[in-house]
């Protein structure tokens, strides 16, 4: 792997991004620091969701456009348990996770299993159909308005380094993301199931001939993705309140996974962090210089298109994309 002419556009992009990042701190250090930290925290959540996306993609070759709905369903179920049934947070959270496990498995078995062997457009459309269905169902059941979670932490903000106020829920989400990531690392390196899943991702037929049940692997990967996404959903819900906005995380996942590489778990985390940081930067330049008002929502997609043009396998993905 040596530096060739092909790497020049990507290098220019990286240098430009770094330059923009540094320049931001020259312009307004405090705001820049705050937005970068917020960006990194949100980015860690993107990374967690992207990780689930990559998990499903690697295990079962299915592109899950309904990833955002996992967050949505999880957050609404948890909200329902906490407010309507008045469960304490711990139990409500636990029941949510149990529910999401069953939900993920049921989805895989009922809807996705008949899709094995179908062309890619069918698989994509099935998950899109599911996403529309659940989005509308949640709106029907819980309404279209933002519903705040009951307060869970005693203090809403803590001062980081004595000067920077950061919401406790953000710290919680950062810790949670780290725990989930370490959990994933352990799971895939040491646990029997995780090794089986890696084998399946590597070669389904060989894995099957070695006695791994592909059906179980598929179901488990969906269950894990549903549970971990629900964790992220609840976290975002605690910070911003629960609403259908949550399903947008499922779309923000795409820039993250493309930047990181579609089939790399490490890449998805780093991609998520980069996209989060990028959003922070977009927000900064938008408010300080450009005044577009919505750069934050489109900037990741511009980066996505550029990355697809110059480095479609992303930072860590396998280089087997055919260029025509």
């Amino acid at each position: 792997m040596s530096f060739t002419a092909r790497d020049i556009p990507f290098t220019i992009l990286c240098v430009a991004m770094l330059g923009a990042l540094v320049w931001m701190f020259f312009l307004n250090p405090l705001l820049a620091a705050q937005l970068s930290i917020n960006g990194l925290v949100i980015g860690a959540l993107y990374g967690v969701v992207a990780m689930c996306f990559v998990l499903i993609y690697k295990a079962s070759q299915i592109v899950n456009f309904a990833q955002g709905e996992f967050l949505l369903v999880g957050a609404w179920v948890c909200w329902f348990l906490l407010t309507d049934l008045q469960l304490p947070f711990f139990w409500g959270f636990l029941f949510t996770l149990v529910f999401m496990t069953l939900f993920g498995i049921a989805l895989q078995v009922i809807v996705l299993r008949p899709m094995i062997g179908e062309p890619i457009i069918s698989v994509i459309m099935v998950t899109i159909g599911l996403s529309i269905f659940f989005q509308a169902l949640m709106k029907w059941m819980f309404g279209v308005f933002v519903q705040p979670f009951p307060p869970i932490f005693e203090t809403s903000t803590v001062n980081l380094f004595g000067i920077m106020p950061v919401q406790t829920a953000y710290l919680f989400s950062l810790v949670l993301s780290l725990v989930v990531m370490l959990g994933f690392a352990w799971f895939f390196k040491f646990s029997r199931m995780g090794l089986a899943m890696r084998a399946t991702a590597f070669d389904q037929q060989v894995a099957q001939s070695l006695g791994i049940s592909i059906k179980v692997v598929f179901a488990i990967s969906w269950a894990i993705a549903a549970v971990v996404s629900a964790l992220a959903g609840v976290t975002v819900g605690i910070v911003n309140g629960v609403s259908s906005e949550l399903s947008f995380y499922g779309i923000k996942v795409f820039p993250a996974v493309i930047v990181g590489g579609l089939d790399s778990i490490v890449g998805s985390i780093i991609g998520g962090l980069i996209i989060g940081l990028l959003e922070g930067m977009a927000q900064f330049y938008d408010s300080e210089i450009l005044n577009f008002g919505n750069l934050i929502t489109v900037a990741p997609f511009y980066v996505l298109v550029i990355i697809l043009m110059i480095k479609p396998y992303g930072l860590f993905g396998t280089r087997d994309i055919e260029r025509v």
């Binding site: 529309i132 509308a136 709106k139 029907w140």
Partner: peptide, 12 residues
């Protein structure tokens, strides 16, 4: 919402 659900369900 029922209309949207019907669209999603029909596709699936």
């Amino acid at each position: 919402f029922l209309k949207e659900m019907a669209i999603g369900l029909a596709i699936v």
